[in-house]
Design a protein around this nucleic acid. Structure first.
Lengths: 187, 187
DNA sequence: TCAGGACCAGAACGATCATTCTACTTCAAC
DNA sequence: GTTGAAGTAGAATGATCGTTCTGGTCCTGA
């Protein structure tokens, strides 16, 4: 009953699944359309190219995280509590949801050209994430918020990658502890 | 004058360059052989498959880093000084040499199957690196060396990825500072 | 009723993929 | 002096790549 096309949504959802789990250059259009139950013609009706679907996939990941932050910000009043919630949220995401690394880092590994739309989407996401973290850290009244936010971005990258390659059990406690140290929060 | 084949060496060197700079699935055998000045027949004389060349590429990266650590260990006596040298070495490597991220992390992004030879090479490398860091940290007389070494592995992952995506100027100082904090070393 | 858009089914495009093959040259070793 | 390994050149394999096309079905809105 959706006025918005269901074929496009299925395509995007399928792409999100498969691109993340198996890589981007490794999966072809045939695979995508057959998995989404859609024909090639329909694919090219909604996306001018495969690259554009890749970009849309990253954009939807970006949107999902922004919404997560927005709802977390709305649910919590105390800024210090929000920071703690963010750290816990990252830890949970890394152990349960994003177990194959960071979609943006993985995509960047496959797209060396920084001017490519896919890389622009990565850049956009990282800029937003960094700026958002600066706000959260600043609101929590922590000194040198830019520097701390930088470190937290680094640590989240590391947590995502490390959880994929070494397992969350080793990495997540290390992430939480290091993040608290950097932010100057006592356990 | 080398008894050892020069064709194989050229192939491996070329693969190291191109795989790192452009990704793995993105470059074909045609490209590799033409860039190395070698024919397809010669390629398949030395490597049973492209995947095997990928594995050999990662192995050579692994060997290079082990040699770097070995020579650093031989050049320095004071364990605390060695740890500092390792941190500086990572910082330098990240800003000057490995500016397209971590070869192992990038490869893992393209090879989702943990049992694949390429992923086994990644596993081997990370196990060695972690164990080596534990030794260095322990020798420096730092408390909880396993935990600290874990954190340093994470931070190096983050520095490599972050330097690629955000630039070394932002990331390297953050890496050095956070690493010193984690290791309990004063500036 | 019928026009038009959304979608399906499937063939076809030229290009490129990894891999294998034949045929010829070069050179060192026995 | 000959055998054989190492290499070159380049065609050929079948599969898959991203993309386009033809033709038909279904459903909705005017």
């Amino acid at each position: 009953m959706p006025k918005e096309s269901t074929a496009r949504e299925r395509l995007l959802a399928t792409a999100g699944d498969i691109f993340y789990r198996e890589g981007i250059h490794a999966v072809g259009v045939d695979r995508l359309v057959s998995e989404a139950g859609v024909t090639r013609a329909t694919f090219y009706r909604y996306f001018p190219s495969k690259d554009e679907l890749v970009r849309a996939y990253l954009e939807s990941e970006d949107v999902a995280l922004r919404e997560l932050f927005a709802s977390a910000g709305a649910a919590v009043d105390d800024p210090a509590e929000l920071l703690e919630l963010v750290l816990q949220g990252i830890a949970a995401d890394v152990s349960q949801h994003h177990t194959r690394g960071c979609p943006f880092i993985n995509a960047a590994a496959e797209f060396p050209d920084a001017a490519h739309p896919v890389r622009v989407a990565v850049r956009t996401h990282r800029d937003w994430f960094e700026a958002t973290l600066v706000e959260v850290v600043k609101a929590a009244g922590i000194a040198a918020p830019e520097s701390v936010a930088h470190s937290l971005v680094l640590l989240r990258d590391a947590a995502l990658v490390g959880s994929y390659l070494d397992g969350p059990d080793v990495v997540v406690p290390s992430f939480v502890e290091t993040a608290r140290t950097v932010a100057g929060i006592s356990a």
